[in-house]
Design a protein around this nucleic acid. Structure first.
Lengths: 255, 255
DNA sequence: GAAATAGTGTCTTTCAGACATTATGTG
DNA sequence: CACATAATGTCTGAAAGACACTATTTC
């Protein structure tokens, strides 16, 4: 790619640019039937009250440094392509999936992070993938999905990056509509609550969650009900695209 | 720098990397005596109740595209240098100043943003500079300071970038200690409130501001007082580095 | 005393969380 | 009926904002 006359000239050259993605997916509870996960953490297998877990696909490194460790999916940035495009491409080539949500996380460029490899500026995105889509995934070569609370040894500074992404998404869910993108067009408040619980990593109080969601005006009832299990059926809701009273949210707020 | 065999090969090459800075400075009210500002917006000139204004240094472009428009200070990223270093260097070469606070804002890399210039990925930082330091600045060649509410025509997407930086800093000031970095080691609550007012761009209620600041535990009284003007002297406070009860804040939170 | 800012007290609203209670379905 | 989840109601405490009021200094 790059031709240098000598070593001293090379030191002044700009580093390479890569784009990586932290992919956060709501794993379905029966994911083991499709993939090869080591730790199922589903919620509706047998009426238990565990919470759904976020899962991250990682790629096993096949060269030094960090040979055999796991790393975030990514690739070099080609000219003429947007950063989002590069992030989506890295996501799709690893998982054969498309994200419900994609946002830039941070750009990591410290020279010390290459650890003997080529100096690299990594523009990192984070993506959200819902249950429905994650069901279709097939485990590609050198790719494995891990629960966020059971991550393997990670290459470079990728552990810090994942932690940062989790901090970001847990903050963002409080003031944006990203959670509604991970459920279908019609959903019960329990389903929506499960998304929040997966991202927060803890249980939420159902009555308070209901009141909070309805008070924002972001969801509205469809009038239909969904019967699932030996209990009272739940009302279905849809995402109210443009709530009248609440203030608009965009990607820039609270970044 | 980069040697390409032909045009088609060039299209696949990575774009150049630059680092730019949105420099936000608390202009002193008598800044006109030092610089050549068009619109003074000081607060203590004659007992008025205007609020201090944030100012931004911009560089006049001396080539196409956007010849004659104003742009953010910046430069190419050299290998072996951290992104922060490049941002500080761009800041210092433009203003001869060092920032109180420096934080990465966002990386802009859309191919359409070059507008006929060379394709460029811009890693943008934002910096805060306090009154004391801004007093020392000298107006360099092609550099001028503008109040944030009276910006000139800007090159590329730099207007969007500045707006984004203002959104970020106004959010960040709510849950971080960046404001205390813009006052001296000892300060009155009025002085601290002026920093908040400059960043928010609006007046704050003094009693409520006092209560809010003291309740966080981030400031503690020194026991001394400062007499300034025909009124009751104000108590001096210092920044309490590690408040006991409040939760720790770091650069990653709420990004 | 007038003026100006420093500082205290109080009231209201809003929101989050804890938790009791009722409602409605299935086995 | 037992049981599980849906949905409503109520209480409390924290935090923010409006604003009245007192305190202390200089001119």
């Amino acid at each position: 790619m790059r031709i240098s006359a000598n070593v001293s000239e090379r030191a002044k050259e700009p580093p390479n640019i890569g784009v990586s993605v932290v992919i956060l997916a709501l794993g379905p509870s029966d994911m083991d039937a499709h993939g090869s996960l080591s730790a199922p953490a589903g919620a509706d297998a047998s009426g238990n009250d565990t919470i759904p877990t976020l899962r991250i696909p990682l790629v096993c490194r096949i060269r030094q440094p960090f040979l055999g460790d796991w790393a975030l999916p990514g690739g070099d940035l080609q000219g003429g392509r947007s950063l989002e495009f590069a992030a989506e491409q890295a996501l799709h080539s690893t998982t054969s999936l498309h994200p419900q949500y994609l946002e830039q996380l941070y750009t990591f460029g410290d020279p010390s992070r290459s650890h003997g490899g080529l100096p690299m500026v990594s523009i990192v995105y984070w993506a959200l993938i819902g249950e429905t889509e994650a069901k279709d995934f097939h485990e590609a070569q050198n790719v494995r999905w891990f629960p966020v609370n059971q991550l393997p040894p990670l290459a470079f500074d990728h552990k810090d990056i994942i932690d940062y992404a989790l901090t970001r998404v847990r903050n963002k869910i409080e003031y944006s509509d990203i959670a509604t993108r991970l459920v279908g067009s019609e959903f019960t408040l329990s389903q929506l609550r499960n998304v929040y619980e997966a991202i927060y990593g803890r249980k939420l109080d159902p009555p308070n969650f209901r009141r909070r969601m309805l008070s924002t005006g972001m969801v509205e009832p469809t009038g239909e009900k969904l019967a699932r299990g030996a209990h009272r059926p739940a009302s279905l809701y849809r995402y109210a695209a443009h709530p009248g009273t609440s203030k608009p949210q965009n990607a820039t707020a609270r970044q």
